[in-house]
Design a binder for these strands. Structure first.
Lengths: 232, 232
DNA sequence: CGATCAATTGAGTGTGTTCAATGTCAGTGG
DNA sequence: CCACTGACATTGAACACACTCAATTGATCG
């Protein structure tokens, strides 16, 4: 079974970068892929201030990126799941701004950025796709910024859940109102800008309201409408 | 005098996109520039959800981008000054995510994104520069996100001031410890995620501490070291 | 079954918000 | 020249929400 995954990596199937490319172009793309490898839970894919410029694709598993605030606290700046590209924070001129860490056992494929941009000059569809993805990335972070502004803990969590749920519905065959969270609660708290206790309290409150049901990392979204309402 | 500005627009001098290009390449770049025009205070350069894809360069003046939170409050997502490119939030597939609004009378040059990327395939230095700028943009917003996490009102303001001061020192001949803020206080408050009253209080506190001195929109940074310390 | 560690709950505190009152300034008209 | 007006900035008091620290409960493993 892992073989098929490795194989699909070779052919760049399912990779957002390869979308709209011909088979031949996909082959060209797969040629420049530097490495595909497994990472253990908590293993780092890259470190803050690393100068090696690559973008990475999550094949299987999940990734978080985390940075350190000016007063020394760890902050989670993003989560990435199969099909997602990450590492764009390293494209600027000061190296990576985050650590990228595997949340679980994860298969990642590395794409050297310089080779990628070189290929872009000959494969126009690829350039377009890359600009799009970077644009979307900029957009999604504007989104995150907006979210941080004066939203209550409850709103933040509900929004996180709805976004995560939509993401999973779109990319997996699972269409249920159930989500599995591969990351632990502390990571979610650091992502939402809350302390773990507050997150715990909000979760309990949502359970009491009958909006969700919990079985450790498996969440049932009982009342999606209210979830969306609370996410305002 | 405005003539020289228009002229420099034609030659793309001072434009971050044109950095490292030959004169001939700059000419090619200036050919695709769609429009250069003046905007009045509070005039919009583009609107949320606009599908027309362009990036814009501030020639003179200043720009803010603002969005609406899920509960209907306006949020300022960024400020842009001469030499800055803005409009990257519209590159994704869902149109612009913000309104771009002139803070004062402002001269802006519009660069259609499609033509720009088409030119990128032939002018490699331009492609590199564009990727870099988008990468930096992603990085700076990661930065902003980190900043929002659990920082006190005072820290946020001090960080804003130091960043703004460094920006102005780099891009203008003015090397004094003085900054002019073209935007009004409400905009700063909406950018920092504070209410205007809190911003006012923090400013007063900084004056009392002897860190800054105020004359309406002109701020003297009396004690830059403490300013940096407080920005932690 | 007890030990260990994580997760939850509770009490108290701090910081920013809200709403209201006061102060400041520019522009207008008597 | 001075009082009046309206917009905006500042200050004050009360409140709400999330944080901190501590205690309790729950889960996992030997």
């Amino acid at each position: 079974m892992p073989l098929t995954i490795i194989d699909s990596a070779h052919n760049c199937r399912g990779c957002l970068l390869a979308e709209g490319l011909t088979n031949k172009q996909r082959q060209q793309l797969s040629m420049i892929i530097h490495a595909k490898r497994h990472y253990q839970r908590n293993e780092k894919i890259y470190h803050i201030a690393d100068k090696i410029k690559s973008v990475y694709l999550v094949q299987q598993g999940s990734i978080k990126t985390e940075a350190i605030t000016y007063d020394g606290r760890p902050v989670v700046t993003g989560f990435y799941f199969p099909g997602d590209l990450f590492g764009f924070d390293g494209i600027g001129d000061q190296g990576y701004l985050c650590d990228a860490v595997a949340i679980e056992n994860t298969l990642v494929c590395e794409i050297p950025f310089q080779k990628l941009t070189a290929l872009c000059t000959s494969v126009e569809g690829l350039q377009h796709q890359l600009f799009m993805l970077m644009g979307q990335r900029i957009g999604s972070h504007d989104h995150a910024l907006i979210m941080m502004h004066n939203m209550s803990a409850e709103s933040r969590l509900c929004r996180f859940l709805t976004i995560y749920h939509e993401r999973m519905k779109k990319h997996t065959e699972n269409q249920d109102a159930v989500v599995f969270l591969p990351m632990n609660k502390d990571d979610i708290a650091r992502y939402l800008g809350l302390c773990p206790e507050t997150l715990s309290r909000v979760l309990s409150r949502l359970v009491n309201k009958g909006v969700i049901r919990r079985h450790q990392r498996r969440l049932e979204l009982l009342d999606i409408d209210t979830l969306y309402e609370l996410a305002s």
